[in-house]
Amino acid sequence: MGLYIEARIRADLDELWHRTQDPAHHQRWDLRFTEIAHLPRAEGDPQRFRYATRVLPFLTVAGTGVSAGERERPDGTRTSALRFSSPHPLSLLAEGSGYWRYVPDGDGDGVRFLTGYDYRPRWGAFGALTDRLVLRPLMGWATAWSFDRLRLWLERGVTPERALRNWLLELTVRALVIAVACTGLGLESALLLLGPFAASMAYACPLLLSVAVCGALFAPPRAHTPAARRCLRTPPGRVRAPRLLGTLESPR
């Protein structure tokens, strides 16, 4: 699989399963989707679903998928697999597949919640380049950020909506600090003309402002703010897609 994300979540396995398998909950914490809805199915068939993502205020791309889950496995883990495709001509993601794994920790204190997925971009060579440089890094970040938002919801009771507000507020504060620091650098020349004390401040300004910029860029996020950096982005060892994925046909 092309992308791998893993989060350790201190939560009940059943509750984690519910908030990831129920579309009404899933669309609340997963930044990659605006809407997810199950479609009618016959008894024993895989679950089909429709998804939509608002790319711009005036542009929404949609697609369909098929999924199946193994809630009871001999080793105590759980698995969910899916295949998806989008016929929308403006969707760079043409089709793909992936899985979720739920692996209880040995000490019973949480769950390793991980995903592996890959997809085929459209638009030929241009699409492949755009995917490699822009979309794939963005999808990896959005998945990790969403996993941490889910963790905050389960561990700390921070709703997905509140988590998003916290993130936007923190992002705004960091951006303001950087903007003020960059503006302050332009005052150095003016301070040099205002006397010895002001001149000494002028020499200290770049250092202080550099410290402020570094703090805004690299300070760890607040405990109630979701952050992609908290998730593992490289598999700890060799990773195999579950056999369940091979049983699913393309939803096209």
Rank of each mutant, 00 (worst) to 15 (best):
G157Y: 09
L168G: 03
P160H: 10
L194W: 04
G195A: 09
P160G: 05
S189N: 11
R162Q: 05
T172N: 05
E161Y: 04
R174E: 07
T183G: 13
P196V: 13
E170S: 14
L191S: 01
L193W: 01
L194T: 02
I178D: 01
A163L: 12
G184Y: 04
L176E: 04
W167S: 08
P160V: 06
A190H: 05
A179F: 09
C182E: 13
P196S: 11
E170A: 15
T183A: 13
A179I: 02
P196I: 12
N166F: 02
G195E: 06
E188Q: 14
R162K: 00
A163V: 06
L171K: 15
A175D: 07
N166A: 05
G184M: 02
A163H: 08
G157N: 09
A179R: 04
E161C: 08
L164Q: 15
R162I: 04
S189G: 14
P160R: 08
R165G: 10
A175C: 08
C182L: 15
G186S: 15
T159Q: 10
L176A: 14
R156G: 04
W167P: 01
L168Y: 06
L193F: 02
A181K: 09
L193D: 02
T183S: 12
L191F: 04
R162S: 00
L187I: 06
P196H: 11
L171D: 14
L191P: 01
V180H: 04
L185G: 10
G157R: 10
L191V: 00
R165K: 12
V177A: 11
A181D: 05
P196N: 07
T159E: 13
C182P: 00
R162M: 03
T183Q: 08
G184C: 00
V158E: 11
V158F: 06
R165I: 12
L171C: 13
T159H: 11
L171P: 01
T159F: 06
L185M: 14
G195K: 04
V158K: 14
R156Q: 07
A175F: 07
L191M: 04
